[in-house]
Design a binder for these strands. Structure first.
Lengths: 327, 327
DNA sequence: TTGTACGCGTTATCAT
DNA sequence: ATGATAACGCGTACAA
């Protein structure tokens, strides 16, 4: 910076101004400084700026996994919004583990991030303590069934599961199955199941047969879980998969084996993946706005960071049950 | 740090040593310091450490997109390896654009990264200049058909395309089609096509009919591109898609419309996605080691960073043509 | 509109 | 084995 200043015949401070608050510098000197910056290929030192200003222009985003397309989508949206405002995203994947999430939070804190975007409302006690004592804004995504630490963007997984079940019950289905992530460690799979189960209970139907698959789930897990369910409960009329990534492979497996969908068994998923409308029959599923959640989360952060302490906003992006041919 | 030092009855410098080079501190004082750190919930200030040490423990990774599962896989592997060594990954997606890549490189440079992991061997002139003048280690991935700036991990896309074509020719196919990313801006799609085309030429066959789809390609683009190809060249016997993400939707579309695969038309992809073995018939494709590339790239970086300037290593992870039922 | 003095929290260097 | 001192490169506060 000193070099640039000398080159432009000004003080280092003026160079700093051109970089940060250019409106405080006269047009003439600004141009001279910019020319010098360009000529010397000057690149500001982020860590030093950060140390002096105590703002890192960094946001941490922690998601369960990149292997699930909806989270990848969300991350892309977060990064796109933040990048435009000159913020860098620090990405971490928790592998659906609260311990890993805690570890990530604790190690990311050293980078002095300006904000956190987390997935879900459940965190380890130490993670909660670390977050609250850091004092930075936090957005929790993908869940509204609970109390956020600060801000939140999501939808009710319980309501979504319930709505889906209600639609299926109205269509006349009576024997239900559920294939999904481990209910004890995946809160959102649990909530979807919970809503689903409560609708069955209200309708006086027997509970769904449950088959849990390990995380991270692969396509094969969808097929395996599906077949396990059919063996356990052959009378099952319709299976709810907690993610399209499981439902689509199961649907394809039916095709291959000549099992008629929805004639022999009906299938529905969650997430409305790209392929849901391409498979035959198209997949009944629940649309969730992953990209919108990412965008909204990033925007909430930016607004808070700009306007100072605002309201503890909670955004509900909703969900939509999409009834297609597979039920 | 001053607080911790007081609490432990030592100087700040000793606290710094416990954090960085604990072996230089006696066991007794180390324990006292560690206790103080724990008690005060002291979190070191990363930016300050960087400023003082001129090491950021940060690696930039730039990929084309997170929406393609192979890149998401690669990123996960990179992050897993780097995280274990205390490094943070700064992720950027170029959207298959050299201009965006250049912009990302230039803005990430402010963070003073210790290394870069890039996708492909093609970069804008300014990007090349920025990278070389930064002086940090660079690993280029996914391509070996060309000269890397520094280190590289990948495979020959040209050879992969050629091998696939040779296998298909040996099976008796004579009329070929190609559906893939825009050949003018996606070097790897171009190379795969180039190898494919050269094998056809060697065999004295007419060139493949080419249909280009825009990036980022969706499942629907696979279907659309496929149908466009069939309309343009109805005599086509086999179609090579530059990615499974396009081939699988096309295959599903055939099923839906009663087109027999491979009887009426054969299909092959690239990448060996999860679903490739689940669809019916299973998809002939080319397996590439995305996770292994990520791991290897991260390890090359770590080794270079530890052992100082080493050889300009080039790792070829190879590829494997997997002939399945779809051809 | 521009410049000067100082401090941000840490590590490197040298001394003890 | 430990401590004192001087950077690291920049932004803030204030003065001119």
């Amino acid at each position: 910076m000193e070099d640039v200043a000398r080159h432009a015949g000004v003080s280092a401070q003026t160079v700093s101004r051109v970089l940060g608050r250019a409106e405080l510098v006269s047009a003439a000197t600004r141009e001279r400084v910019e020319a010098a910056i360009h000529e010397l290929n000057y690149i500001p030192n982020g860590p030093a700026r950060h140390l002096a200003s105590s703002r890192s222009r960094t946001v941490v985003a922690i998601i369960p996994t990149l292997a699930t397309s909806v989270y990848a989508e969300e991350v892309s949206s977060i990064m796109a919004v933040l990048e435009k405002e000159g913020f860098t995203t620090l990405l971490g994947n928790s592998d659906h583990s609260l311990e890993r999430e805690e570890h990530l939070i604790s190690s990311f804190l050293e980078r002095q991030p300006d904000a956190f975007i987390l997935t879900g409302l459940t965190h380890s006690p130490r993670a909660m303590k670390l977050l609250s004592s850091s004092g930075v804004p936090i957005v929790e995504t993908w869940e509204t069934d609970g109390v956020p630490i600060d801000m939140s963007v999501g939808f009710s997984n319980i309501d979504a599961g319930r709505s889906l079940a209600e639609v299926l019950i109205a269509k006349g289905y009576r024997d239900f199955g559920f294939v999904g992530g481990r209910l004890d460690i995946e809160p959102r799979a649990r909530q979807r199941h919970q809503g689903f189960a409560s609708a069955l209970a209200v309708a006086g139907l027997r509970p769904a047969t449950v088959v849990e698959v390990p995380a991270p789930a692969s396509s094969l897990d969808g097929v395996i879980g599906f077949n396990q369910l059919r063996q356990q409960a052959p009378e099952t009329e319709v299976v709810f998969f907690s993610a399209d990534g499981l439902a689509i492979p199961a649907l394809l497996d039916c095709q291959r084996r000549g099992i008629k969908v929805p004639g022999d068994i009906a299938i529905c998923g969650f997430g409305d993946y790209d392929l849901a409308t391409i498979v035959d029959p198209p997949l009944t599923t629940v649309r969730v706005e992953a990209a919108k959640m990412g965008t909204a989360a990033a925007q909430l952060i930016l607004r808070r960071l700009k306007d100072g302490v605002g309201a503890k906003q909670r955004v509900d992006v909703g969900y939509r049950v999409l009834v297609r041919g597979s039920t």
